[in-house]
Computed example of a mutant assay.
Amino acid sequence: MIIETDRSGGVKELEELLERVSSRPGVEGLLVLACGENGFTPEDLNPLLWRQNLPLAGGIFPAILRGAEKLERGTIVAGLGAPLRTLVVPGLSDPDIDFTRHLEEALEIEGPSPPGLDAPTVLVLLDGLARRIEPFVEALYGLLGIGRTYLGGGAGTLAMDRSPMIICNQGLLADAALVGFLDVPSSLGVSHGWNPVAGPFRVTSSRGTTVETLDWKPAFQVYRQVLERLGVHSIDPEDFFAASRSYPFGIARVGAERVVRDPYQLHPDGSLTCVGAVRQGSFVHILHGDRHSLVSAAAEARRISQRFQPGPGGTRLFFDCISRVLFLKECYAEELSAVHDPLQPLVGACSIGEIANNGHSYLEFYNMTSVVADLAADLAEVQPIPDRQEHEP
């Protein structure tokens, strides 16, 4: 993978990166990770994206990662030295879309293993605040199945608005998902480090991403009582996320680690909106963590990924929830150091929700979780490069 970085966040600089990376020998696809602070708009970006001849996958995130560095302004362009096929799914919040049928038609599936779609790695980038992420993820996994690595994350910014965030050959899109089939073996580690401090509570009423009642009481009433018992006595309704990012929900899974849900919005009726759906009838705990547990979890995700290392060389992809950054603050450098290997290039994003499986278990949309993937060396990494090379050391 050929990796180049612009730290200014400019459109012209992005154009130069795209030209430079796409012209290098062996590059067959482009991964673009951009910061929300860049202020990219469809009017600025679309003419540039429409001109790209190579398949392109990317998104806008609160922050992006290059090596041991977190950038809050700028853009990373990575050249993929293996075939990349992309598929864009619009209307990720549309209640009338049958995602299974849409994907079947888009992929022209005629059997369990359609030609060209058996890539070992599936990159999924999507609008992190879309209201029907889980039905889309379930449909995707139902059609493509096990035996491959899925990874990715939710695009968006800390403004939590619904602006266009998905970068692809069609332009800068809102409320969409992009699926990239990458013909490179990969390995995956997933861990979060949040531990239960109260519960379980039954979700007695919910609507998609909004939890209305827990144990037949307004969700915020239950949530506030727990936090007050734990010593958190000041919860500002106008800045609910300041407290909630330290106390997420954890959805119970049989025989597996809890799936974290990040409540970020409090409504006047006492309901709580999360990043990702919480199904009625499920059971949730309230979780908490500390610096040690979160950093240790990121290191564990790296360790698991390395245990299934696909081969020497290659690139590490890291999708890490932006809520972990906000929780750890100046200590986030420790989490990034726990994942970064100075001898291996790393690119990634601080995302709004994470997509992952491990090649065998069920595909999930996570929150507040570290997802580490090691990609095998691809063709672009071994091709001679006529001009200066900007690999990480």
Rank of each mutant, 00 (worst) to 15 (best):
S8H: 12
G10P: 01
E13D: 14
E15C: 07
L17H: 03
V21N: 02
R24H: 00
G26W: 03
G29A: 02
A34T: 06
C35Q: 12
E37G: 11
N46W: 03
L54Y: 05
P55Y: 06
P55E: 08
G67P: 08
A68Y: 01
A78P: 01
L84M: 11
L84W: 01
L84S: 00
R85M: 01
T86S: 05
R101F: 02
E104G: 07
E105R: 15
G111S: 13
G116W: 10
P120K: 01
L126E: 00
I146N: 14
G147S: 11
G153T: 07
D161M: 06
I167C: 09
C168H: 13
G180W: 07
P185L: 03
G189F: 06
S191L: 02
H192R: 05
A198P: 04
T209L: 04
V211G: 10
D215Q: 13
A219D: 06
V226F: 05
S246L: 14
R253A: 15
G255I: 09
V259R: 11
Q265I: 02
Q280L: 01
V295N: 02
R303S: 14
Q306H: 14
G311H: 08
G313W: 03
F318W: 14
F318T: 11
F319T: 08
F319A: 06
S323P: 10
A333E: 10
L336T: 10
H340D: 11
H340I: 02
H340E: 14
I352V: 14
E354W: 08
N358F: 04
N358P: 07
E364G: 00
T369D: 12
V371N: 07
L375N: 10
L375G: 08
L379N: 12
A380M: 03
V382C: 02
V382T: 14
V382Y: 02
